[in-house]
Design a protein around this nucleic acid. Structure first.
Lengths: 168, 168
DNA sequence: GATGTTATGTTATATTATAACATCGTCAAG
DNA sequence: CTTGACGATGTTATAATATAACATAACATC
């Protein structure tokens, strides 16, 4: 089975164990830099480092884990240091907050607006971001029927990723 | 347009401002008592009171708000008092946790298993619980395609309820 | 280089949640 | 009864997450 290398519509939004993660991070950082430049937003070194730390893996990272790691290069860091950077990154769509885990994960497609859904493995924490119109539409449709104006959808699905699947 | 009064499939899962809330609470407590009896679970006075407090309105309530209120009748109450009761109520499906608010809301239909979605008004906090198969199915379908086994769906939609709608 | 604005530093504290161990209540077996 | 087991609650302490408030520094523009 030939695996296409296109980024446009990946066969699986889950990253494989042995994938080249460094290039994921590089791509995310480059993409962030470009986006911020285009918008006149300042991706400072601090914010860049926090974004890099969020991208340590394809799993949600807690603010205090980021803080601890940040202290390696930035000894004086305190909670506001991290939370302010996270706020900036969130506003620019570079990261998403996973509400059910109080944790943060990098956005793989920050350049385009989207309504995301997250699949989060309960075993290995691998997290995949979907942008599935059929799901978003089902929500919007029902909300509209009820006279509810949607501002934001938080959709987080807990379960087993393909690698951790019981029967796989 | 005739509004049906049926409970089975309400026209709107949002409660109207002037509705008879006392009967909502009574119904929820009766229902909980019956459910617990049937299951051999002990709905103690403490748990019953916490459930009642969660049902103060059709809006999510934080654990510490419950704690404060509980102290009216129960001066010695401490955080574990509340969290343990919430855990019990959650295990029995009598309440749901709203992850995006770190708060709890009563379940209007605890007697039947369901996958819920929540519509939460950003202005008045009114919260409606949906059990919309079309939404749950859209999630399950896409997850299955990706080899992801769903254990739990957290779907929380923020927006404006019919009463708080900009154009209404 | 003065000035306004944005970013960061710093200290303290708020908010949410759990650990750990003691005590109490209930209920059934002896 | 009463003893023992178990589940519920009490109690104290602390963990984990997040923000307020004010001070200073960096940067941009004039």
């Amino acid at each position: 089975m030939a695996m296409a290398r296109t980024r446009a519509k990946p066969a699986s939004p889950f990253q494989r164990a042995g994938h080249d993660h460094e290039s994921c991070v590089d791509h995310a950082l480059d993409c962030a830099a470009e986006l911020c430049r285009a918008r006149g937003a300042r991706l400072t070194e601090l914010r860049r480092q926090v974004l890099q730390l969020v991208w340590r893996g394809h799993t949600p990272v807690g603010a205090y884990a980021i803080l601890e790691a940040l202290r390696g290069t930035h000894p004086g860091a305190a909670p506001p240091t991290v939370y302010r950077a996270l706020e900036f990154l969130g506003e620019h769509g570079l990261i998403h907050r996973i509400e059910s885990l109080n944790a943060y994960v990098g956005c793989p497609r920050p350049e385009r607006p989207h309504v995301s859904q997250f699949l989060i493995c309960a075993q290995c924490s691998a997290t995949a971001e979907l942008d599935e119109p059929s799901i978003a539409r089902a929500v919007l449709r029902r909300a509209a029927e009820l006279g509810f104006t949607v501002e934001r959808q938080t959709i987080e699905v807990r379960g087993r990723c393909p690698s951790c699947r019981p029967q796989a």
